[in-house]
Design a protein around this nucleic acid. Structure first.
Length: 903
DNA sequence: GGGACCACGTA
DNA sequence: CGTACGTGGTCCCA
């Protein structure tokens, strides 16, 4: 774009403040934050608006105009100008600066002019565009811009949110206001503009004003003939002539600001992709934003992002020949990244010794495939982001990952748990500050089918480049992690003694799976389906109208409008329909009233469809040998706990009798005679006793008395035998509540007692168990000083929010700090137990095997004749896992199914 | 198809 | 205004 005027060009002129405000109110401020407490809703909405308008209007130039703080010449003319506006919401603060950062990264010019408003900048540039034979598109919600509309100037007014615009050309203005655009300011002067605190003539609206202007030509004509205008409106006009003249003076845009004369400074296509993606990252914008970044804005004009400036570009690693060349370079460290591409299928990204590339595994010939096998064997070390899934993936492709394979996510997790993900992209971003290309959208089957071969090939090439780049990035990631571990012996130890060996065990658990009794599953499913259908039918009959009981939104209409029941607790989308509230609501209604009945069936529907969901999920997950193979995620929970996915077997119902029946479906498999479950009794409270060294609590565990009864007898100062069930359950709630950072408010809500009573209960507890109070206090204080909490094995959790100025964030971090050492130490202990049990069973040469872990419970599949030996190993492994100052007690149950194995 | 929200199961 | 998770449904957007 060499031209420095706007002849034949199309310039987009955006009112920065007006649109930022619009975005702010269109999107919820508390749902868009950068993770550090800064709201980004206006920034996000503004960015989306830019993307949408740029993509749909294809301008050649863009300018965003901002107001400056501190007023303009208009305030000197009229000191009430824009008075009476609400104060800027605190969450809006800082967002203009962030928008300007986004604009800088996108290469979009933004302007301010001291003493003038954004409107004036826009008016000047629109006028210039028109004069130079160009076209201006003005984007603003400010009506003052209507006066600019005409030949070559079109207004885009947001109608809904910030991305939906209405085009206002001269005809549209005339149609809407009954005056041409150049007379609009005359009309506005008569009508007034409340947003600017410019009152007009009372009783005169747009209709009357338009009629007068049409009759007398323009505002001067109207004022000249003010005496002739009859009626109340005429009198009002005569009384307000000064205000009208003032309004007209105020709303006239300035058309001749001194702005840069060279329009090439406003041209599009100067954006920096890397910088923009980095800014989006900072703002915690998602993939959608990264993906939708319009190429037209960027300096590289849609070309692939340049590879990082390296002295020597990597050699290729894409063919059998390349693989052979790599072998010659031995010894070498290899990095590996896998992907399933919609077009190419299994893609393997590899990087080593100054080479990088990607293989389409289905296209490898025998020769290349053999070379790959050799490379995998020859590598000294193989760095992978997620070893268990990579190993399984490679296995499915016919390749083995051996002992040299090395998991990077585990290291990153131990060093800093709590990240959302530890995939290659995230590791690169957190450890190297690398900004990844956004992933392309998944194409639909239809678009895939009609894709031209060359287009398809191009997509495959991009996918290969992505996976190769990811693999290449893992090498410096591995180096960085290794360096960090060198400075963190506590993390090294935790990895070597616990997490790395455990990873192998977890892979084994995944392979084993657990047997499903499909007959029982089918039977139960049929039974539960019947209950669901019945509940749906009965509930439907009571309200008459079609209602989806699974839709909280539709339920709100039925409950609070159709049935006009009392409102429940407020939530973002209206009023909650959660079970707790519905039960409360039901208690307030007469038995057998329609509302009461409906709620009964609704709750029944919820309960049974939840249970059915488990059965459906299990059914979908069973393999050909009737087993389900959950995956234990080792880096999912910041406390160090495991998580179970696909399917989640750590949340199988147990609380209600009907729910428990789902456990009948899990059974000892063929060749085994029973399931054995072993769980720690009150492990978290034991850890609390250990960590707090509270003498009373330690005594409670050593006495052998029921814990909650013992504690209650102290708290209520009665003999253990005189502890009633209410005392016991209240004490129990306090005990567990303390480990979660429960407040007196929360306690009172949970126990449905007054806040005063809750406070008294907690105080009484602390009086008898002062060590617990001291421990809880000091552990938070210590975490605030060091920045992290620690478990018994030295596992850290960093909590920067402990020193936040934001009360909500700080108090939340304090609760996390209270809980993490307790929950995390329990996780450490059962992990140690898992290693011991797995090792001891193997060494004893048993066929019995560990299958599941449910936080404080292990599930073992017992082979015929091995029960007593297994029981011994499991109990010994669990209670000997770690020595606390109180004993670890283990309960054991045995049965054909998981239900029968309860104890 | 992706993401947000709601609801709810477990320790 | 009690910690830690994962899943499935609906709804809205693209």
């Amino acid at each position: 774009m060499s031209a420095n005027d706007l002849n034949g060009q199309r310039i987009l002129l955006i009112d920065g403040h007006a649109m930022a405000f619009r975005a702010f109110f269109a999107l919820p401020a508390d749902r868009f934050t950068d993770g550090r407490g800064q709201s980004t809703n206006a920034v996000y909405g503004f960015t989306r608006m830019i993307f949408t308008v740029v993509a749909s209007e294809r301008p050649s130039h863009v300018v965003v105009a901002f107001d400056l703080p501190g007023g303009t010449f208009r305030d000197r003319i009229y000191d009430q100008y824009k008075g009476g506006r609400e104060v800027t919401p605190p969450q809006f603060h800082g967002q203009i600066g962030l928008i300007q950062q986004v604009l800088d990264a996108l290469g979009i010019t933004w302007l301010t002019v001291p003493d003038y408003e954004a409107d004036d900048i826009i008016a000047t540039l629109a006028t210039r565009a028109r004069a130079e034979g160009g076209e201006a598109l003005v984007v603003t919600s400010d009506r003052d811009a209507i006066q600019l509309v005409g030949e070559g100037v079109t207004l885009l007014q947001p109608v809904k949110g910030v991305t939906e615009m209405r085009r206002m050309d001269a005809a549209a203005v005339l149609e809407k206001y009954q005056v041409p655009p150049e007379r609009y300011s005359d009309l506005a002067a008569l009508v007034g503009e409340s947003a600017d605190n410019l009152p007009g003539v009372p009783g005169v609206g747009p209709k009357t004003a338009a009629k007068w202007i049409t009759a007398y030509g323009d505002l001067d004509g109207v004022l000249d003939h003010a005496e002739e205008i009859g009626g109340k409106a005429g009198a009002a006009l005569r009384e307000n002539i000064e205000a009208v003249r003032r309004n007209r003076l105020m709303n006239a845009a300035v058309l001749d600001l001194d702005l840069p004369a060279d329009a090439s400074g406003f041209a599009l296509g100067r954006g920096d992709r890397e910088k923009a993606l980095a800014v989006f990252d900072e703002l915690a914008f998602g993939d959608t934003t990264r993906r939708d970044l319009p190429e037209i804005l960027l300096a590289d004009g849609g070309a692939e992002a340049e590879p990082a400036a390296e002295a020597e570009p990597d050699l290729p690693l894409d063919t059998g020949e390349d693989l052979r060349a790599l072998l010659a370079a031995a010894p070498f460290e290899l990095a590996l990244e896998t992907a399933d591409d919609v077009r190419a299928g299994a893609l393997l990204g590899l990087a080593a010794a100054g080479r990088r590339g990607a293989l389409v595994l289905e296209q490898l010939d025998e020769e290349a495939s053999a070379a790959l096998g050799e490379v995998l064997t020859a590598a000294e070390r193989i760095h992978v982001a997620d070893l268990p899934s990579a190993r399984e993936w490679m296995q499915a492709q016919g390749y083995a990952l051996g002992e040299q394979a090395h998991d990077l996510s585990l290291e990153a997790f131990v060093l800093r748990p709590g990240s959302r993900s530890y995939d290659a992209e995230s590791l690169g971003s957190t450890l190297l500050g690398h900004v990844a290309e956004p992933r392309p959208r998944k194409p639909t089957a239809a678009s895939l089918a009609k894709e031209a071969p060359e287009v398809r090939a191009e997509h495959v090439e991009r996918a290969r480049a992505r996976v190769a780049a990811a693999a290449a990035m893992l090498l410096p990631v591995a180096a960085e992690l290794s360096a960090q571990l060198g400075d963190a012996p506590w993390a090294r130890r935790l990895l070597d003694t616990l997490e790395v060996p455990l990873q192998a065990t977890l892979e084994t658990l995944h392979e084993r799976g657990i047997a499903i009794d499909q007959g029982t599953l089918a039977q139960l499913r049929e039974e539960f389906d019947g209950f669901v259908a019945q509940a749906r039918r009965e509930a439907g009959a009571l309200v008459g109208e079609e209602v989806n009981l699974s839709s909280p939104k539709q339920l709100q209409v039925v409950l609070f409008e159709t049935l006009a029941l009392p409102k429940t607790r407020k939530i973002a989308s209206g009023y909650t329909t959660d079970a707790e509230s519905l039960v409360d609501l039901q208690l307030s209604l007469p038995v057998e009233s329609p509302g009461h009945e409906f709620l009964s069936w609704l709750l029944r529907f919820r309960e049974m469809s939840k249970l059915t969901g488990y059965l459906v999920g299990l059914d979908a997950a069973v393999d050909a040998s009737s087993r389900v193979h959950t995956t234990f995620q080792q880096t999912a929970a910041a406390t160090g706990r495991l998580a179970s996915t696909d399917p989640n077997l750590q949340n199988i119902p147990v609380r209600t009798a009907e729910g428990r029946r789902i456990r009948e479906v899990f059974a000892a498999g063929e060749g085994f005679e029973s399931l054995l479950t072993a769980d720690y009794s009150q492990i978290e409270m034991r850890i609390m006793a250990h960590l707090s060294e509270d003498e009373g609590l330690i005594e409670a565990f050593r006495s052998g008395e029921d814990l909650h009864r013992f504690v209650a007898s102290r708290v209520f100062d009665v003999a253990p035998d005189d502890v009633d069930s209410a005392m016991r359950s209240k004490t129990k709630a306090v005990s567990y509540g303390l480990a979660y950072g429960l407040s007196a408010f929360g306690l009172s809500r949970q126990l449905r007692i007054s806040q005063a009573e809750a406070t008294a209960l907690r105080d009484g507890y602390f009086e008898r168990f002062g060590g617990v109070r001291d421990y809880l206090r000091s552990s938070v204080e210590r975490a605030r000083e060091t920045g992290y909490t620690e478990t018994i094995l030295g596992r850290r959790r960093y909590l920067p929010d402990l020193t936040s100025d934001n009360r909500q964030r700080r108090e939340n971090a304090e609760r996390v700090a209270l809980n993490s050492p307790i929950q995390g130490s329990a996780a450490d202990i059962i992990k140690l137990a898992m290693l011991a049990v797995e090792k001891d069973m193997r060494e004893a040469g048993l066929s019995s095997r560990m299958l599941l872990q449910v936080h404080d419970e292990l599930v073992i599949e017992v082979a015929p004749g091995e029960l007593e030996q297994v029981r011994g190993i499991v109990v010994e492994g669990m209670d000997g896992a770690y020595e606390l100052s109180v004993p670890l007690e283990v309960g054991v149950g045995v049965g054909r199914t998981w239900l029968d194995a309860a104890h």
